[in-house]
């Protein structure tokens, strides 16, 4: 019986329609790149107002999060990711999407058990493992270079 299962899973893998990986990579590059270009333009705008590039990065993030949240609210950002894949998910606009989408979805369950409890459904794991990874990498850097 187990060999039948194995055979079947093998047949499944063999016949399964292939993901268009080359096309997906290309679109991810274009969409992700385009979002970064928009971010760069926003940062230049703040630098024009007399901010240093480092000081301009915070308001830039705020604007990009605002754009991501707005496009999610309008129901457009899911289409951006549909085409762009990780190119749409990875930038900070994708993070905004991951926060706003559950907030919209679970508002019917109320402020506490709906929005409050579910807000980090998607972004939660990213934050947990992102911070854990940052801690590990920083610790390694500290051990190697002595720079905290």
């Amino acid at each position: 019986m187990d060999s039948e299962k194995e055979q079947y899973q093998q047949l499944t893998r063999q016949l399964m329609p292939k993901r268009p990986i080359a096309r997906n990579l290309m679109l991810a590059f274009l969409v992700g790149g385009l979002i970064c270009v928009v971010g760069q333009v926003v940062q230049w705008f703040f630098m024009q107002q007399g901010m240093s590039s480092k000081a301009a990065s915070s308001p830039t993030s705020v604007v990009m999060i605002g754009i991501g949240a707005l496009l999610t609210g309008l129901g457009w950002y899911d289409r951006v990711v549909k085409w762009g894949g990780m190119g749409g998910s990875l930038p900070i606009t994708g993070f905004a999407n991951a926060m706003v989408a559950p907030a919209m979805e679970f508002k019917t369950e109320g402020l506490i058990m709906g929005i409050g409890a579910r807000l980090f459904t998607i972004a939660g794991p990213v934050l947990v493992y992102g911070m854990a990874a940052a801690f590990v990498v920083s610790a390694i850097r500290y051990l190697l270079t002595g720079v905290a």
Binding site: T72, G73, D78, V81, K82, G85, G88, S89, A101, E105
Partner: peptide
Amino acid sequence: RQFRFPVELGYQRTPT
């Protein structure tokens, strides 16, 4: 919402 993700979350569906 019960089986997958919030509707407005962007992600790519697989061909199957």
